[in-house]
Design a protein around this nucleic acid. Structure first.
Lengths: 127, 127
DNA sequence: TACCGTAGTTCCAGAATACCGAACTATTGG
DNA sequence: CCAATAGTTCGGTATTCTGGAACTACGGTA
């Protein structure tokens, strides 16, 4: 059936799921899959941004191995679906909550915004 | 003289928060801070596991720069508190949902697909 | 003052992972 | 068979994670 390896529902771990969703490209993929309630191939689920296909493939693999999506080869393409039931069963309400929250995260996209550098000359100011 | 640099509430990004929480050590820290509703120093908030201090310091920095925790130097120690208000303001319900879900993530794996919600928060106290 | 112990940070290496171009592997259609 | 499509895998480089050793900062004690 599914040609790829997916974790069993009981093996889905919260930290792995959160780490998988903690990436702008990957959460965009998940949001696209959640919006289209049917399976999408990688091109349709990937964001319109200029993401190379090898990088996209990597992101799909992370999502798949985290148990967030399910991937089934169908002809020349891969059909990706959100593992909603498995996620809701293991972490009830989590996925919906994150998808709802992600609406507030749209805006100045990641990378290079000079408004808030994540690293700073740390620690104690002048004593 | 607040000490360390924290992102402004409006600069807290969902993907950064999820990435910060997508680590076993870091979510253990957040759970400890959530359980003890007061500030904890790094030693008290850190998991009992054998995590070196340098690694722990790194994890606290990631949480701080993600906007998850706030760190204030107080004497010889750092007092860490969860930025509950800021997180709830930006992503309402998200933190509670994740903390609730993280109870299901304890242990190596759960046998079978059972919809039993684990409601046994055993140890909760810190001295 | 000096000295000591505690609490964290910083520095430096090595391991692990992320990114992306290029080459490769199916599968479908002409 | 040949070409096009859809993704994967393979390289090198870049970034991050991990942990030991050294360091800074503060409080207490003479």
């Amino acid at each position: 059936m599914s040609g790829y390896l997916h974790p069993a529902p009981g093996d889905i771990r919260l930290t792995t799921v959160l780490a998988a969703l903690g990436d702008p490209v990957r959460i965009a993929i998940v949001r696209a899959l959640a919006a289209a309630e049917i399976g999408l191939n990688c091109s349709a689920a990937g964001p319109i941004e200029n993401v190379p296909r090898s990088t996209l493939s990597h992101h799909f693999r992370v999502l798949r191995e985290a148990g967030v999506i399910s991937m089934v080869k169908k002809g020349v393409e891969n059909i990706n679906t959100l593992r909603r039931a498995d996620l809701d069963d293991r972490f009830p309400g989590l996925l919906d909550q994150i998808l709802r929250s992600s609406c507030a995260d749209l805006g100045p996209d990641s990378a290079g915004a000079s408004t808030s550098p994540p690293e700073a000359p740390a620690a104690s100011a002048a004593p």
